[in-house]
């Protein structure tokens, strides 16, 4: 019976998620507190109806207060423990990522040196090997940067700069940067830049990261020949960015979880094993912290349109 209640209320799952004993989960402690309080209140009722003795009533009332106090205290303790664990986890990610950046910088620079300055004697196969190390170390740097961003988001200290941002220029730069990747995936990128759009206030590097994440998703998750269309335009004091692909799409059943940390939908895992499920989580946090909103429409097998809007504010 006890096990059944524990299962029904998902206390076991909560205990696993929070990495604490079942007896320390807030849900379990609340139930215990509720049961004890109910029992004592019923007892109080009987005492007050059947016995005309105020001192017994005072004693049992005191027991309620003490019980609530003790259990309340252990709830606070367990919540504190969870918060502490969470903080330690974020700090660990942050320290580990910083430490990883140094050796990664060294790998990138040494391979760059080998390729660009000492590359003459290398055979084509050796050059290919160096190129592979270079691009993989670049991928590791991006992963480490993503983990650092997630740790900052989780600690509530992702600080964004406030500077003038030309979103159309960011889009053009990102397209140039992703050109080789798009060619490799047989994807055409079209930027519908109709007219001049106003500049906004935001963090250039972070907003570039958002555009980059959305564009590389569009490229990566297109199978066969594809097309990615980007538009930037102004609507009611907002700058709206959208990107439309004819890729694999997001299954309806998984659309709710698409912005969750580490989430990757089943169909994209099949097509593309590379990916961490952090890109959209980071993008959402950056856009929302910049005062904007991010959303999408998608049909599996047809394609996806991702959009975000940012307020146009004057200095």
């Amino acid at each position: 019976m006890k096990i059944k209640i524990i299962n029904d209320l998902n206390i076991k799952k909560q205990a696993e998620e929070l990495a604490v004993d079942i007896w320390h989960t807030p849900s379990f402690l609340f139930i215990v507190m509720g049961v004890i309080t109910a029992v004592i209140m019923i007892t109080n009722y009987y005492i007050s109806v059947n016995q005309n003795r105020p001192e017994v009533l005072v004693i049992s009332e005191s027991i309620i207060v003490i019980t609530i106090f003790i259990i309340g205290n252990s709830i606070i303790e367990s919540v504190e423990q969870v918060a502490k664990l969470n903080k330690m986890k974020s700090e660990f990610v942050s320290v580990a990522s910083h430490q990883l950046r140094s050796p990664l910088s060294a790998i990138r620079w040494e391979t760059e040196l080998l390729q660009s300055k000492f590359g003459e004697g290398l055979t084509p196969r050796q050059q290919e090997a160096v190129q592979t190390i270079r691009s993989l170390s670049g991928r590791m740097v991006r992963l480490v940067n993503d983990l650092l961003d997630v740790a900052k988001i989780d600690q509530g200290r992702l600080a964004l700069k406030k500077e003038r941002v030309d979103l159309a220029k960011i889009v053009e730069e990102t397209i140039n940067q992703c050109y080789a990747q798009a060619r490799a995936h047989n994807v055409d990128i079209i930027f519908n830049r109709k007219k001049q759009v106003p500049t906004i206030i935001g963090d250039n590097d972070r907003l570039k990261l958002v555009v980059e994440n959305l564009l590389t998703n569009g490229i990566k998750y297109t199978v066969g020949k594809g097309r990615v269309e980007i538009g930037v335009y102004e609507i009611n004091n907002y700058l709206v960015f959208n990107i439309k692909d004819n890729g694999v799409g997001i299954p309806k059943s998984q659309q709710k979880r698409i912005f969750n940390k580490f989430f990757r939908s089943d169909n994209i895992v099949k097509h593309q094993t590379e990916g961490t499920g952090l890109g959209l989580y980071i993008a959402k946090n950056i856009v929302e912290q910049s005062g904007g909103r991010i959303w999408f429409e998608s049909r599996e097998g047809v394609g996806t349109v991702f959009s975000f809007s940012l307020p146009i504010k004057q200095f």
Binding site: R101, S102, L104, S105, R108, W109, E112, L113, S116, V141, V144, N145, A159, L160, K161
Partner: peptide, 25 residues
């Protein structure tokens, strides 16, 4: 971190580059 960048610029650094993000080139 933005606080590191700000501190450096306040103290008179001309600019600030992150090693892992920049090629030697």
């Amino acid at each position: 971190g933005p606080e590191d960048v700000q501190k450096a610029l306040d103290k008179g650094a001309t600019t600030y580059l992150i090693k892992a993000d920049y090629k030697l080139e």
